[in-house]
Each structure stands twice: as C-alpha cells, then as structure tokens.
Design a binder for these strands. Structure first.
Lengths: 341, 341
DNA sequence: CCACGTCGCTAAACTGATTTAGCAGAGCAT
DNA sequence: ATGCTCTGCTAAATCAGTTTAGCGACGTGG
C-alpha cells in the first residue's frame, strides 16, 4: 500500500452522500429507504477507491472483531494440532473470520496472560483445545462469551467437539471380525488404573468400550490386554514382546494408537514374523507414520481437520449445545488379513 | 466477566484526574510533568478497577495492534509448522504481542484474502513462512509494512530466517569422519536435476555443499549418491536397496532427511543388517520418528522453535537486514559407530 | 509591579466506523 | 390551510483510547 487507505468518509464524499448512507449501503442494512441510485453510487465509489473498512474502528463501535481465539493447552506445537488449526482456519475463512492463536502450555500464568490478551481484543468466540481428549478446567473469565471445547470436555457442560472414539473402537473390532479373527484378538495400550494418564484416558476408555461391545455382540472377548504406561513406540515394543511369549499367539493385535503399533511392528520384525500373514495389526490415529510402515498400517483416523472445522461451525453457526462427535474414518491399508490356517 | 470493563475514563475519575493524565501515566510517558502522587493515584485506581485498555480503541488512534500476522503457504498444517508457531508464539508473548494465523495453501485467491484480512487489521508486522526452504514471491501489498521471511528467501532481499543447512551438512560429515568413516560414505536423497522439487532444493543444495566441502577437506569423496525423486520413506527404501546391490557396501549412509532414513532402516532390516554395527546411518530434520527408530537415529535437528522465535525477534527488535541462519544441533543417538573391522 | 518561564494538569480534537434521532419535502385527506 | 404520514436522507453522538494545544498558579529577575 503506497498511499493512504480510503475511509468511509472518502467513499461518502465521492458518492455525494453522507457517511451514514455509505455505511448503511455497504452493510446491506434492511429497512433503510435509500434509493437504488444511492446504492449504486456508494458501491461504485467504494470500488473505485478500493475501500476496505477499518476493523479497529468498526469493532470499537460494534464490539465484534470477526476474530476467533484458538487457545490450546499445548496443541499448537504438536503434530495433532496442525489439522485442528487448518480445519478451523478454513471454516473461519468461509465465515470471514480470522484466528488468533495462543498457547497456555498448561501453565497458569501463561493461561491468565492468554485470556487477558483475548479479552483485551474482544474476540467473538473462543475455541479451547486440548492436545488429547480430556476433561478441562475452563477459566471462568472466558465463560462470559461463547466457548467451544475442542478435543476436550468440561464439567460446565459447554458445547464440545470430540472424535467418535467409541465408534472407531467398534469399527476396528468389526474389521477384525469381518476378516475372520475370533478368539485370538489381543490389545496393546490399555493403561493400568494407577498409571492412568488423564490426558489419554478418555479416548482410551471410549475406544475400549467400542471394542468390547462389538466383540461381545459377536460372542468374543479379548485374548489379552497388554498394559502400557504411555503410548510410545517403546511401550508397544515391550507389550508386543510379552504378548509373543504367551502360549497362544494372537492372530490379531489392536493397538491403541499408531506409535504403539510402530513399536509392535519393530518387535514383530525382530521376531521374524510377517504382517499380516502371521499376525494382523490395526490401530488408531492415522499418524503419518501409519502410511510409511511396511506394510501400511490400517488405522482409524483422528479427523483433525473435520474437528477444527466443526468447532468453528458450532461457535459461529450456533450448533447443538452438547457434545458433537466427529466420525473417525478407517484407513484400510495392508496390515490386516485373515488369520493363518 | 460479569460486569462491564472499566474504561480509562473510569480510572481517571477514580483517581480524580483527567483522561489525559491517566493515559500518560499508564503509558509511562517520559517528559510529562505529572506529580509522583498523581502517578500513584492512577496506578491505584487502575489496579482497583482491574483496568485493561481496549485494544481496538487504542489501535484506532495509534495504528498499532500488538499483533503479528503469521502467514504461511501451507505450514500451519504440517508437523514442521508446530515448532515454528510455538517459537513465534513464545517470542511474541514476551513482547506483549499476539499471533494472527493465516494459511494461503499456495492458492492465489486465498492469499489475496489473507493479505486483505491482515491489512484490514493493521497488524504490526508479517511473518511469511514457507513449509520447506525455498524462494518465495512475496505479495507486494504487504511490502509496505515490515516483513520477515521464515524458512524462505525472496528476490526482494527481505530479512529472512533460515536453518543453517550447510553447517549441518558439515557437522554430519564431520561426525562420520570422527568415527573413522572414510571412503565408503554414501548419500541418499540427492534429487535428479530434472526432478528437482523447488520446495526442497534449497535445503538439499546447502546440505550437500556442507557435506562435500567437509569431506573434501579430509581428502574424501562420496562413494555413491542415491537419487530420490522425493524425500519419502519408500524412496529411501528403494535407494538403500540399490546401494546394497553395489559391489562395495558403504560403511555409512547420509540420508537427506529422516523419512528417507526410515526407509533405509526398513531396507536394512529386511537385508538382515544391523545398525550401526554393519552400517552407520545419519540424517537431517529430527522428525519425531528419529527418536522412535531402533536404534535411535542420529540427525541434525531443524531448530523450528528457534526459527520461529528468531523471526519475531527480527521483526520486532529490528535485527539484521539480511539472512539470519539458525544452527541445526546434532541429536546424537545410536545409529552411528565406527566402521566394522 | 510586570514580564517571563516552569510546573502540573486538562479540554478538546482526533482516529474511523456504527447508530440514533430527526429534518425537509412530497402526497394526501380533511 | 392544516395536519398527517411517508420517503430519502443527514447531523451528531458514540465507542475508548491518544495526542495536541494551552490554561492557571507560582516563582523569579529586572
């Protein structure tokens, strides 16, 4: 921009009308009695001057900023965040809004700071996101405005957007059943009650619920449940090894996420077993690594983009009050086959 | 916030002073002749009322918004973006600024839209980020304000922040030399000239430059250069296999990034070779997967957080005019050892 | 005693939009 | 001629700050 920006007053002057008229025309106000000719003159003037309203001035008066705050505990930095943000960004753009991003890093001071920055800027709404599905304490200061929780729930029963982990669990179990697996399906990644990480337990519980219910409906129950303190490859590796030491080897293994599955792949590789011929593996998340593994890992994808998108929709279009579940589509790759023999 | 926010006028009234006085005190203006007592009264009043200035009103007058736009072609969605954003977020917070995030997705319409949104909001500066180091066409509209390129360069010779790929190349080569590797060092991931992907070629060239220069200084040259159309695991896998088919097997392999290295690991695993006993592997990026591989992959880390941070620093603190290189630290894990026998 | 400078502070303008209140003129009925 | 409504438009207030210009009191030197 070399020269100054045109203001509403410039537009009005050029159109030979008042600022009031120009404002009303440009905002498409109903019920105004301005002539068709006045409309045309204003539009023409605005066009010629390349007029764009000054957001600060407008929001000073209207208290609307066309801005959404995206507050996350620690999301923005993780791989999982990317999709959430991208989806939110897309949906926001479609509604002429913009995203202000903040991270609390789980630190109370940073959180307070972030909330203040948000309140100072009078954002139109807040998306409060958590890195992993969990229960969140929402700072009361932002409860005044509209808030949507993303990948989290809260005691305040605010609207929230969650992945349909239970449905995904059902689908995963269904898939194994459909391939003919029955009594020798094992699971890797259940948390020991004492070690339950609040950050993953909600997702874990829901997935497990879906799995168990579906298997039970087919008269099947899990052969074994490998416990893992966390969901990292090394834990999947260890769990897989102990699983292989058992007298009856499973025909299929459900991993609670792709990192565990990666560890399981490593253990199977070392044991000289082939996926899916000797053993099928299926998992959750659709981490990029799932596509890179050999063979590709079948997994129920966390629909990050859809979730980010939905959060904005609920916030701006005023969706349902309660929880909004986004389906987790199954990515079918080569890691699942019929059991040997 | 149950009740209304206090305004400057409220503070002034409570302090028994004018808005002017309150404004000057709170902004710490030098050269004003307000008494020490006046200062105290204003501070006390502001404190008691929990006063926070209205950003819209302030920026209407000052044309400063304490907001930085983070525009990326496609960054925000990728894993690489996370660190950039997080670093920028931290540095921005330290300077009482906030980040407005936008994505162009490489689409001209989206880009125009993003630029307009940014100009409308009168951001104080723009960080223009690219997903992979490359040359970028900066839209002229934002050249009026201050711009910093992140992970990209441009013909306009704007200030930019880049990873020190050449230094990393040198360090990687140095590391192999230090372990005793000499004439049997191979490379995976060079691009064929025709297939050069503009998105990665800059980084690739710099890394290669560093590698070659360091080896040359030791009187060594690369045993072989495995070409790869892209930098994905499958290409690393293929390149490693053809490398193993050669008469003289390398003692060490440099992969141009961790995904290629992952593919190389897979090929080595299938060939029954052990890392690092039979062959050392070293790489670039420090993708999360590098830590998950068995053995852990030694790799020169892309310092995303530092880069994001530096971008904000250059933008706000007015750093050097030219390019600012951020060192890539080597993450030493277990994939490098002395050559066998 | 007056001119002048300094001190401590304030009134009012200003930023660029939205919104309220209301004005002038035309048309119509009485 | 008067009162009424309706039409098409505008003046001015408002949002919450920052900034400019300047006012009254006091001290001082001539």
């Amino acid at each position: 921009m070399g020269h100054e920006r045109a203001t509403l007053a410039d537009v009005a002057r050029r159109a030979g009308l008042s600022k009031t008229a120009a404002s009303m025309v440009l905002n498409g106000r109903e019920g105004t009695r301005l002539s068709a000719e006045a409309h045309q003159r204003v539009f023409a003037a605005a066009e010629e001057l390349g007029y764009r309203p000054n957001v600060a001035a407008r929001s000073l008066r209207t208290r609307k900023t066309a801005t959404i705050a995206f507050v996350s505990d620690i999301v923005a930095t993780t791989r999982f965040a990317g999709g959430l943000i991208r989806g939110a960004l897309d949906a926001a753009r479609e509604r002429d809004h913009v995203l202000l991003i903040t991270e609390t890093q789980g630190d109370a001071t940073f959180e307070r700071y972030a909330i203040e920055a948000i309140l100072d800027r009078q954002v139109d709404g807040v998306i409060y996101a958590a890195m992993a599905t969990r229960r969140l304490a929402v700072p009361p200061a932002i409860l005044g405005g509209s808030v949507v929780l993303l990948n989290a729930t809260s005691p305040e029963s605010l609207p929230c957007v969650l992945p349909d982990d239970e449905g995904a669990g059902a689908m995963v179990a269904e898939t194994l059943l459909a391939h003919g697996h029955r009594d020798r399906i094992a699971l890797i990644g259940r948390n020991r009650p004492k070690e339950r990480d609040p950050e993953i337990s909600l997702a874990a519980d829901a997935r497990l619920r879906g799995i168990r219910a579906t298997l039970a409906a087919a008269g099947v129950s899990l052969l074994a449940e490998g416990f893992c303190p966390e969901w990292l490859p090394e834990h999947g590796y260890a769990a897989m090894r102990t699983l292989l030491d058992r007298p009856t080897r499973p025909t299929a293994v459900i991993c609670m996420n792709d990192r565990l599955a990666f560890g399981a792949y490593q253990a199977l590789g070392e044991a000289g077993l082939t996926i899916p011929d000797d053993l099928s593996v299926i998992s959750f998340d659709d981490d990029p690594i799932a596509a890179w593994l050999r063979p590709g890992l079948s997994t129920a994808a966390l629909p990050h983009e859809q979730m980010g998108r939905r959060a904005v929709e609920v916030l701006l279009d005023g969706g349902a009050g309660g929880a909004s579940f986004v389906p987790m589509p199954l990515r079918r790759r080569r890691s699942v086959a019929a059991p040997a023999g």
